[in-house]
C-alpha cells in the first residue's frame, strides 16, 4: 500500500463527470423522442455505453487503478459481448 501514494480524486472532477452524465441522459431522452426507428435503439445504447464508461473510469476509480484490474474489467465486458454475439448467431441461424 505504501509503495505508491493513493490518488485522491477532487470534488470538482466528480461534479464535472456528473454534469457530463446528466447531459448524456438529456441527449438520450431527447433522441428517443424523435423516433429514429431501429436506429434509436443503437443511439440509446451507445449513449448508455459512454455513460457506463464514465462511471467506470472516474466514479469507480479505474483511471487510477493498476492495469491488472483494468484488464480484468475490460475482459469481463468483452466476454459479455462475446456471449451476446454467440447467442444471436445461434438464435438467428436456427
Amino acid at each position: 500500500m505504501d509503495k505508491k501514494e493513493k490518488h485522491i480524486t477532487s470534488y470538482s472532477l466528480f461534479a464535472k463527470v456528473l454534469v457530463a452524465l446528466l447531459i448524456l441522459t438529456t441527449i438520450s431522452v431527447l433522441i428517443t423522442e424523435i423516433h429514429f426507428g431501429a436506429l434509436s435503439v443503437a443511439v440509446a445504447l451507445s449513449v448508455a455505453c459512454v455513460k457506463v464508461a464514465l462511471v467506470l473510469v472516474y466514479f469507480m476509480h479505474l483511471k487510477w487503478e493498476n492495469s491488472f484490474l483494468r484488464i480484468m474489467v475490460a475482459g469481463v465486458f468483452l466476454l459479455f459481448a462475446l456471449v451476446l454475439v454467440f447467442t444471436f448467431i445461434d438464435y438467428l441461424l436456427r
Partner: peptide, 9 residues
C-alpha cells in the same frame, strides 16, 4: 444506466 433506455426509452 442500461435498464433505463432499454425499458423506458
Amino acid at each position: 444506466i442500461f435498464l433505463f433506455p432499454l425499458l423506458y426509452l
